[in-house]
Design a protein around this nucleic acid. Structure first.
Lengths: 237, 237
DNA sequence: ACAATCCATTGATCTGTGTCAACCAGAACC
DNA sequence: GGTTCTGGTTGACACAGATCAATGGATTGT
């Protein structure tokens, strides 16, 4: 771990992250509250269920998954976090993390000590507003996902998911047509409430139909419109 | 609509609501920011998708449902709000409501003008903290619901739902064994991602087995343990 | 280079729950 | 007092997707 100066200003996703909308002087203060950055490797966890809330985290590069554990011990993946996204917000309720965050790839993380963020937010209204904004969008992201799981069929869910990933990659300056799926088929299936076999079969069918090309984790979307049509024009997921 | 003085202090659910943890002087200021209260009748809506964010709302008595509209126009119910619960948090992301809130019964609502709450939160750290806490618990509530929808079978979902309602009623000082289901079978089914027929069949089966007694909307839980066993000891829903 | 894993694909079969349809009961209305 | 409506229950049947099983390909470790 190392102290990072100018962390936010040099970060390509700051406009998607906590600093969005802050002025230069405010950014200075946020950067000085930012403790350190850390790097996780595939499979390493950032926090697990029950850990006390010490910090919020921002993904700087790479990809994380978050999951909750059902009473039966079965993992349910809640989301995949790309650069610019905040992690740990669910811990604000009871001061303990309610889910587990694991790296799916080598991932750089900014650590935001909660006490400092909280103090700073009390002084900087625009920071507090941005924090609320991010929490609000996490709430509505989950609402969209609920709608997806409750009343769409498997292929619609998978198509929405790929479309959503595509959009997020292009928002971050990467190609929305060709990208790497950081997660395994198992993880996609779990996230979308289906089995690995159904994921595999559906992808194979789309490949046969010329909608996509997929080889291991490398995905090319050949017909974005076709995919969106299957998704029912809904980009949740 | 009328101005309400001492709104929070006289409210039986204030400890579940925004004022939780506030000192007397802070409570004064919150109450003076609280604009008015209003009453909705069954079927009336508090806000709908796209309405600009003007206020957050707290349920004082009665029951509300919130739902999002899929791209295909299909309603997906996201939650049922009981007294003490806050509504409108999803609007903080884009300053517009992302879902619709409709009364399921005659319902009293406290209106919290967002601009005033925001200003006040900047001055009262404990209020801001409580707002974040409530948003955090909404996030984890939805996470639990995701887990329920993605990998539980219909009967487990329904049992979890009833168990969760039971718990919330008893938290509010009502009986957790005998209570009125404010929502229709159709609304339960929609919320839990199943059909009305499956809800009906499952309830009938449990009635036959002596787990519950249900007549129209009046539910008695005869065997809470049995119900919880079906739910797999998970209280999400 | 080989075995040992792990992950993905594909096929065959089974099942939970959706779909379609008939029926019933209570509420609302003439 | 009957008619219509709305919401709920029950049954028969169909099907999307789960489950079980076999195989293949890639990655890891020795």
């Amino acid at each position: 771990m190392e102290r990072v100066r100018q962390a936010c200003r040099s970060c390509s996703v700051s406009q998607l992250c906590l600093p969005a909308g802050l002025e230069a002087s405010e950014l200075d203060r946020l950067e000085s509250a930012l403790e350190k950055k850390m790097t996780l490797h595939r499979g390493e966890s950032l926090y697990t269920v029950g850990d006390p809330l010490e910090s919020l985290f921002a993904v700087r590069s790479g990809c994380m998954k978050t999951s909750v554990l059902g009473s039966d011990g079965v993992e349910q993946i809640i989301g995949f976090a790309l650069p610019g996204e905040l992690l740990g917000l669910d811990a604000l309720s009871v001061e303990r993390h309610q889910c587990t965050a694991v790296a799916l790839d080598t991932t750089a993380i900014c650590v935001l000590p909660f006490a400092r963020i909280e103090d700073l937010a009390a002084e900087l209204p625009s920071l507090n507003r941005q924090l609320l904004r991010i929490m609000g969008s996490e709430i509505s992201r989950e609402q969209d996902l609920l709608s997806l799981l409750a009343n769409k069929r498997a292929s619609e869910r998978l198509a929405s998911f790929l479309d959503n990933l595509s959009k997020r990659f292009s928002d971050r300056g990467y190609s929305g047509r060709d990208f790497r799926l950081y997660m395994s088929r198992q993880e996609m299936a779990n996230y979308l409430g289906m089995t690995i076999e159904t994921v595999s079969r559906t992808l194979s069918a789309w490949q046969r139909e010329g909608l996509i090309h997929i080889e291991s984790k490398a995905l090319s979307i050949l017909d974005p419109e076709g995919l969106r049509a299957i998704a029912g024009n809904c980009v949740a997921g």
